[in-house]
Amino acid sequence: MSRDVFDQSEYERRVNRTKARLREENLDAIVVSDPANMNYLTGYDGWSFYVHQAVIVTPDADDEPVWVGREMDANGARATAWLSEPNIRSYSDDHVHSPYDLHPMDYVADVLEDLDVEDGRIGLEMDASYFTAKSYTRLQENLPEAEFEDRTLLVNWVRVKKSERELEYMREAARISEVAMEAGLETIEEGVPEYEAAAAISEALITGTDAFGGDYPSIVPLMPSGDHTGTPHLTWTDRPFEQGDPVIIELSGCRHRYHSPMARTTFVGDPPAILEDTAEIVVEGLEAALDAAEPGVTCESVEKAWRDTIAKYDIEKEDRIGYSMGLGYPPDWGEHTASIRPGDETVLEEDMTFHMIPGIWTDEVGVEISETFHVTSDGAETLAEFPRKLFTT
């Protein structure tokens, strides 16, 4: 189970770094509701984020985090988290979709009172996917003396530099990405329904390699095709692939919730010159940006290497071309911190990890060729080993 994924000492280091941030920001507690952050701090791993749950951290040196969740999920916390029994707290099932005007945040408020912070400064992940507006108002109603502060990214920034064990899992996820991408490319051909390619990819993502299996990724395989390759976040349909179809595949292997995304583009038949030329430009720009990535440079300077490259071909792209990522749960494997884009002055540090996806989408064509990379003392280490080119079937 998850308690075997990392040594307890690694979790304790993570918690201590988080507590140091709380002290720096003069917070009496933080209520963590992002499931990736919950996992990062405690090891808790369950598909329970569709109901309200949280991990509460206080700055007191000797205090463990407190996991709070649905009663039926408490055994999941016991099975996967490193926490001692008193720090696994659960609310009764009548708090879920309650006909009695109960809400899980009523119980979270009780736990905060037990921790003597009911009138303190409490950080909340206000922009986390599973922290709702009602969660906020119920906490306010229950703890009127508390001062709530938005600290959505506090733990995310603690996560941004990876340990060697985290990097090991991301490298294993890269091996799964390679297998899954190969499965997708081998399945796509004229007459094959799009869903068959998605099924082949999904099977490979779970089956993994001969050495280890895969977990469910935070994002399903993305497969825009035909006229829709300029729309990057479409999935699949019943439509059979046709001669002349470009197809983009974006996927990620997942190992103990750690990801290594990769995107490639293929074509059913003989590709037109404009698609071949665009793919070559994407590869050239991607490699220029990877060459620029090293400790001490800023995210925006890495993006500039890409932008300067494509400018030679009179192409402009305003979107970001990458983001920090690693540990994740649906709906996203990104960390929501550093982005490789103009204006982001985040300085790259050793052991940061990014997904660099400098696609070009126009009214005529769409091409995605991406890499996950690790910032090392020598520059960018790409985690996957897969040809950077336009594929054909």
Score class of each variant (00 low, 15 high):
Val32Asn: 00
Ile369Ser: 13
Asn37Val: 01
Phe131Pro: 02
Arg171Lys: 08
Glu25Ala: 08
Phe212Ser: 11
Arg264Val: 14
Asn39Leu: 14
Phe267Cys: 04
Gly214Tyr: 05
Ile56Lys: 03
Ala380Phe: 06
Val365Ser: 06
Tyr216Ile: 10
Glu316Tyr: 10
Leu154Met: 11
Asp45Phe: 04
Ala279His: 09
Asp4Trp: 03
Glu25Gly: 05
Leu290Lys: 12
Gly123Ile: 07
Met356Asp: 07
Ile281Asp: 03
Asp106Met: 15
Tyr195Gly: 10
Arg151Gln: 11
Thr187Glu: 04
Glu316His: 10
Tyr136Met: 10
Gly285Glu: 13
Ala81Glu: 05
Ser252Arg: 06
Lys134Pro: 03
Glu145Met: 12
Ser339Phe: 11
Ser370Thr: 00
Glu294Met: 09
Ile248Trp: 03
Glu318Asp: 15
Glu381Ala: 04
Phe267Trp: 15
Gly334Arg: 11
Val55Asn: 01
Pro65Leu: 15
Thr298Arg: 15
Gly214Met: 04
Pro387Ser: 10
Gly191Val: 06
Glu335Trp: 01
Glu182Asn: 08
Asp351Trp: 07
Glu345Cys: 03
Leu275Met: 04
Ser339Cys: 06
Gly285Lys: 12
Asp291Gly: 08
Thr229Asp: 09
Glu145Cys: 10
Arg23Gln: 04
Glu166Leu: 02
Leu205Met: 14
Thr393Gln: 12
Pro144Glu: 00
Asp227Thr: 15
Ile360Trp: 07
Asp94Ala: 02
Phe212Gln: 13
Pro240Gly: 02
Pro246Leu: 04
Asn26Met: 12
Ser90Cys: 07
Gly230Asp: 10
Lys134His: 09
Gln53Met: 14
Lys162Cys: 01
Arg78Gln: 10
Cys299Asn: 15
Ser92Arg: 15
Thr278Ser: 03
Val365Thr: 08
Asp28Gln: 06
Arg138Ile: 14
Pro272Leu: 12
Ile360Asn: 05
Gly76Phe: 14
Thr235Arg: 13
Asn16Met: 06
Ile369Leu: 11
Tyr91Gly: 02
Trp47Arg: 11
Met223Arg: 13
Glu335Asp: 03
Arg320Asn: 08
Val68Leu: 05
His95Phe: 15
Asp116Thr: 00
Gly253Asn: 06
Leu115Tyr: 11
Val32Arg: 00
Glu350Arg: 15
Leu185Arg: 14
Met105Asn: 10
Met38Asn: 03
Asn142Ile: 06
Tyr91Thr: 00
Asp308Gln: 12
Leu115Arg: 12
Pro295Ala: 13
Pro65Thr: 13
Glu287Val: 04
Glu118Met: 05
Leu167Asn: 02
His97Pro: 00
Val32Tyr: 01
Ala29Pro: 13
Ala197Asn: 02
Ser377Val: 07
Glu349Thr: 01
Glu145Ala: 15
Thr265Tyr: 09
Leu327Pro: 00
Met72Gly: 11
Lys161Arg: 15
His228Pro: 02
Asp7Gly: 14
Ser225Ala: 15
Ile30Phe: 06
Thr209Cys: 11
Lys134Tyr: 07
Glu189Tyr: 11
Ile188Phe: 04
